[in-house]
Design a protein around this nucleic acid. Structure first.
Length: 276
DNA sequence: GCCCAGGGATGCG
DNA sequence: CGCATCCATGGG
């Protein structure tokens, strides 16, 4: 897959490893709008327009360097897929979700977003996040930026309740008050174990949410988040009825190693789309 | 009314 | 450590 940057545009030719709908519908990002063959994707205070044509994909933004990194365009997913398709569990899921990529999103935005995601559904997660952006984020004209940590520190528990966070409202308040810019920045230089331990020490973050933050926001590709869907997938593939998500995560991250995160995304997208 | 959603906190043994 | 129970809320 070849791409080039021209002015304020990235053009991806023969996008064998890049599908806009698959990426956006793989449950790793909540701030996007799909409109036919085009889409708008936002990350922190930045935004990109994506256009899908028959022979190419174009990404337009004022911040193309940011989105080149965001979409991880330098990673060769063709090679990763070639390896993972040898796995009996994954063969069909990789073909089905051929254009999925793990986004390199903002760690702080992922932290806030995945606290909201706990025991929640994607539609409602999107609404809650949009509510927080429009109420506390900077008005950028076409869209609202994700509220900065400083901005969110002014939010009350009632504000979070108004955003539809339910019982997560007090957890969010507690964690936002405890966080600092530095504590989030420090996560990027920690070992997997230390980052996990710190994240889990925060209210509203358990192992699954921590793994999502680490995978989508901190670049730890060797973690395997296990939610209700992955739990079902595991039980189907292994013909078991386990409810022990920690054990499932340990087992699958051992099986897929450095490719755990992307393997998990292929599973999630395929089975959530009705595959079996 | 029920069950489910990219689960976590708490208490108990 | 493992396990059970409770938790807001909207959609199917």
């Amino acid at each position: 897959m070849r791409y080039e940057k021209i002015d304020k545009k990235i053009i991806i030719y023969e996008p064998t490893d890049f599908n806009v709908l698959q990426i956006l519908n793989s449950g790793q990002i909540f701030r996007y709008v799909i409109d036919g063959d085009s889409a708008v994707v936002c990350s922190i205070d930045k935004c990109a327009h994506l256009f899908t044509y028959s022979d190419r994909i174009e990404i337009e933004s004022k911040d193309i360097d940011y989105f080149e990194e965001f979409f991880d365009l330098e990673t060769n997913y063709g090679e990763i897929k070639k390896i993972l398709k040898n796995d009996i569990f994954l063969a069909k899921a990789v073909d089905f979700g051929y254009g999925i990529r793990i986004l390199k999103n903002d760690a702080y935005e992922m932290l806030v977003s995945f606290i909201i995601s706990a025991n929640n559904n994607i539609g409602r997660i999107k609404k809650s996040i949009e509510h927080l952006c429009s109420k506390f984020g900077k008005n950028m004209g076409e869209y609202y930026a994700f509220p900065t940590l400083k901005e969110l520190k002014s939010a009350t528990i009632q504000d979070y309740t108004d955003a539809g966070l339910g019982y997560r409202a007090s957890q969010m308040y507690d964690t936002i008050q405890k966080l600092t810019e530095q504590s989030i920045e420090d996560l990027k230089n920690m070992t997997r174990e230390d980052a996990l331990a710190y994240l889990i020490s925060l209210k509203g973050i358990g192992e699954k949410v921590a793994n999502c933050i680490m995978l989508f926001g901190l670049g730890f590709n060797d973690v395997f988040p296990v939610d209700t869907w992955i739990n079902k997938v595991y039980n189907t593939l292994t013909n078991t009825e386990s409810k022990d998500r920690k054990k499932i995560s340990r087992e699958l991250s051992a099986r897929y190693g450095e490719f755990s995160g992307i393997a998990q995304q292929y599973f999630f997208y395929y089975f959530r789309s009705g595959g079996s």
